[in-house]
Design a protein around this nucleic acid. Structure first.
Lengths: 338, 338
DNA sequence: CTGAAAGCGCTTACAG
DNA sequence: CTGAAAGCGCTTACAG
């Protein structure tokens, strides 16, 4: 039914080797033959099978992207950037939402290996360092948005530490001293770094973060809401919360609303990511912006760079991109009365 | 390096045919042999190559999902549902964001064909009906979220017409009679149906939609904002706007805010989709909810159903899922003074 | 119950 | 400049 390389070879009166060469622009083929063969491919609507070509050792032109959840706008935007850059360069991308669950991660990795994809971008929790080390040995890997512990891979992240510092600085300038944090899992480097930068900057001004004012959350909005609600109980609640991503910040906003706490009059909220969510909430969120398009594009470039060079053990690069403070309406000076 | 079927056959002292049979649970193999071979596969960490298996006529266990933009939360949520159902059943999904551009659509389809994926879900504009007809002939196709014109394929959509009616009914009950619509491209069935239902319901109460009060927009927030801004110029602006998706509604909200028009006091906004955006805007959006998880899951089931049956020309099914009105704070009774 | 052989659609030395 | 042949890692009749 579908035309194969044999069909075009027969039609052109040449061998399949010759056809293969014109497809791949290899070897020397006379101009005339080349043109003729192209014409025949066109006429037969011949499309080379990437399956067959992959089996003979070439690329599958498919990349994997492991993230916690494609429905989370942050990862949606990153995925879009990855997809676009990949598509530009001739690669498709398979999306793998892991919910940060080890078992899903292992399943996906196993499947992707069986499909012999050309490389994999990891932006999700990795429970098992062994799995990852093995993976790194069997195909190009790049970490995106977070470090991968104990494994040498290319890495592209936002400068989370700096971002945390900027958030703290902003709150300090507004006069806040009783502040809290809704963080993500401490198993994740980006989360640790944001907290670290935040804390360090506070301490430079002599402000200490109470231990029970740092709450690790899962990655869903509801988790942020619940933890924020608990934190806002009682009269002496914090005057400002730093949320490690927009989703958690949305949760915090909702918790505050339900508790009758006005934002920013009674509580300031600084977020992280600056996805579309930050611009549409009530009130719009002051947020530390991550360069999502650039993160995605750089990850693809790093990944494909590894494909081209033969030496797999080349030095691993780490790219940290600057973040930016976007001030909106969820932060304000602390009340004098407070 | 990596173990192949030959390695396990040699190790087990059998032929590769036998190993293949135990992998695929075909033919009759003695219990003992079977167990032994499984043990060897385990020991060698043997993973069958889906590339090789696909080349011999089996599935690639990969699906394509064509949507306008994965960074749009609506498609993000649908994609997540598609991914989950696919993953459950052993399939990966390749994401293709088309921006509704014909040229991107054609490119993606061509690539997906070359990769011999098992089926494709189309939730994006399709300029060229011929391309689509060809596609339908070469692999299973299902339309998701919109009809595909002139081509017999399984279809799973929300009941857009009914959703449009519900939006109209809600506004009528609130006393609105001077209403407007921010629609998507009229080339898209879902958009037409929403508008049709909306208009019909209005007319049942004797309310006519002015022609210049229906504005088709592209799929980006900015387009909604711009069109809404133009619509809100002048004193006699509509008292309510029906926005055909959450992104456009967010744009409308922003336009109103910039024009100093209070929502819902001076303008009601009803949205469509009920993504996460609807719950976080300022104010939160009254929205017609689409069952995104069910849409995604049903699309996968329909697609894989076609894979299993041999008769490709079986009657095409069309599933329309009910929508639901979610009332939040962007709608209110029209002002008596108005 | 098991295996030899052909074939899927390509690519790649190698020979000419 | 071009082609015959082996091989990629499987599956599937078919024969025994």
């Amino acid at each position: 039914m579908k035309a194969t390389i044999y069909d075009v070879a027969r039609e052109a009166g040449v061998s399949i080797a010759t056809v293969s060469k014109v497809i791949n622009a290899k070897g020397k083929i006379s101009q005339e033959r080349r043109r003729e063969i192209f014409a025949i491919m066109e006429r037969l609507q011949y499309q080379p099978s990437v399956i067959a070509s992959a089996l003979t050792g070439k690329h599958t032109y498919t990349l994997g992207l492991l993230i916690p959840d494609i429905a989370n706008p942050f990862y949606g935007e990153v995925a879009r950037a990855v997809e676009d850059r990949g598509h530009q360069l001739g690669y498709s991308v398979i999306i793998c939402s892991t919910d940060n669950r080890d078992e899903r991660i292992e399943q996906y990795i196993s499947v992707l290996k069986q499909k012999r994809i050309d490389g994999i971008m990891i932006g999700t929790g990795m429970g098992n360092a062994d799995t990852l080390r093995e993976l790194g040995a069997s195909m190009p890997v790049v970490a995106i948005g977070r470090e991968l512990p104990d494994v040498p891979v290319h890495t592209v992240v936002a400068d989370d530490w700096q971002g945390g510092r900027m958030a703290a600085e902003h709150l300090l300038q507004l006069g806040h001293r009783r502040v809290a944090v809704l963080s993500e899992s401490m198993a994740v480097s980006s989360s640790r770094d944001r907290l670290k930068g935040f804390k360090e900057r506070l301490e430079e001004d002599g402000v200490m973060l109470q231990e029970n004012h740092v709450r690790p959350c899962k990655h869903r909005m509801e988790d942020g809401k619940r933890e924020a609600a608990r934190m806002l109980e009682g009269k002496e609640h914090p005057t400002a919360i730093f949320c490690c991503n927009d989703l958690l910040a949305v949760g915090a906003l909702q918790a505050a609303k339900e508790a009758g706490i006005r934002i920013p009059a009674e509580l300031s909220v600084v977020s992280f990511d600056n996805t579309i969510l930050a611009s549409v909430t009530d009130p719009p969120l002051t947020s530390i912006s991550q360069p999502m398009e650039q993160l995605g594009a750089a990850a693809v470039d790093l990944l494909l760079g590894q494909l081209e060079q033969d030496a797999p053990s080349a030095a691993k690069r780490r790219i940290a991109m600057r973040t930016e403070l976007i001030v909106r309406s969820s932060t304000a000076s602390v009340k004098p009365a407070d």
